[in-house]
């Protein structure tokens, strides 16, 4: 039974549309620690619809410029890399981000908002890493980390009412364990498979796969896996979850070996994440209730 569901899910991954060449290149460049804004400009200016979209956003009311911006170089430097990567990914995977997550009792837009909030939080947390972690890569991993939920949601319909009491009774340690039991794999593994199918560069697929178990990640990506793990946790605590699984995930306590974050730091990060999340969301025209 479970094997058959697992096979169906793996097949469903292979039926997801591929992301555009521009999006794929942008993720690859953004993941390169030596990249500069000029590298992003070179990709964007060869993609006419993307150029038009960026210029529309930078000239929108959210930025309230006196003079119209017509140069893509200027637009990118004003928007900043996070906004550009966020916009490109939101567009490239809109069919997944706009999923209503019925299997989690979520609503349309929840997945996008949770991933964006996690991305912003991961980038902030990267600054507290004991070893250097690339903030841009942290942001991109955050944006992608829960996409697997969009694929398995349909297979989890009507399950939250059973899963939540089962966790309370100690039958499952967390929500991912329940997904494993019901489907034979969890949302992080599905996200990993999807990222590999899209041929995203490492470490993106692996970090997606280990975002709930950074302690088990290969040593070379462990610091980044912990950064994204904490970004996800902060997004959940801020109320920006994806439905019934919110907060039913564990904080891996060994994060203290990788991230130097005291209570005051955490409080400041919470404030900054809320402010930055609202700024990006409102600028991208996906405005909602501030949470």
């Amino acid at each position: 039974m479970t094997k058959s569901i697992k096979d169906d899910i793996l097949k469903a991954i292979r039926e997801v549309p591929l992301i555009s060449p521009s999006a794929s290149q942008l993720l690859e460049i953004s993941n390169d620690p030596d990249h500069g804004l000029v590298d992003l400009v070179n990709i964007v200016k060869h993609d006419a619809p993307l150029t038009a979209q960026l210029l529309r956003i930078v000239n929108s009311a959210a930025f309230s410029r006196r003079a119209e911006i017509t140069s893509i170089d200027r637009a990118l430097s004003l928007l900043g890399e996070d906004m550009v990567v966020g916009m490109v990914l939101a567009d490239a995977a809109s069919h997944l981000f706009d999923s209503s997550l019925e299997g989690y009792g979520g609503a349309k837009g929840d997945l996008w908002e949770h991933n964006l909030r996690s991305a912003v939080a991961a980038k902030k947390i990267a600054a507290y890493s004991k070893t250097r972690v690339n903030g841009d890569t942290s942001f991109t991993c955050g944006l992608l980390h829960d996409l697997g939920k969009a694929i398995i949601s349909d297979y989890l319909k009507n399950t939250p009412a059973e899963i939540i009491p089962a966790i309370a009774q100690g039958k499952f340690n967390n929500y991912s364990a329940a997904e494993q039991e019901i489907l034979g794999l969890d949302h992080a593994e599905v996200g990993l498979e999807l990222a590999r199918y899209w041929q995203l560069p490492e470490p993106l697929p692996s970090v997606i796969g280990y975002h709930h178990k950074p302690d088990q990640a290969p040593s070379e990506i462990k610091p980044l896996a912990y950064v994204v793990h904490l970004g996800d946790i902060i997004a959940m605590l801020s109320g920006g979850g994806t439905g019934s699984d919110n907060l039913f995930h564990g904080l891996v306590p060994e994060y203290v070996d990788y991230i130097d974050l005291n209570n005051d730091d955490l409080a400041l990060v919470v404030i900054e994440v809320n402010e930055e999340f609202n700024r990006i969301r409102n600028s991208l025209g996906r405005e909602g209730v501030e949470q």
């Binding site: 907060l247 564990g250 904080l251 919470v270």
Partner: peptide, 14 residues
């Protein structure tokens, strides 16, 4: 005032 599943109670903002 909820929390995640945090055995060491380090992220105890709630």
């Amino acid at each position: 005032g909820a929390s995640v599943m945090d055995t060491n109670n380090t992220f105890n903002i709630g």
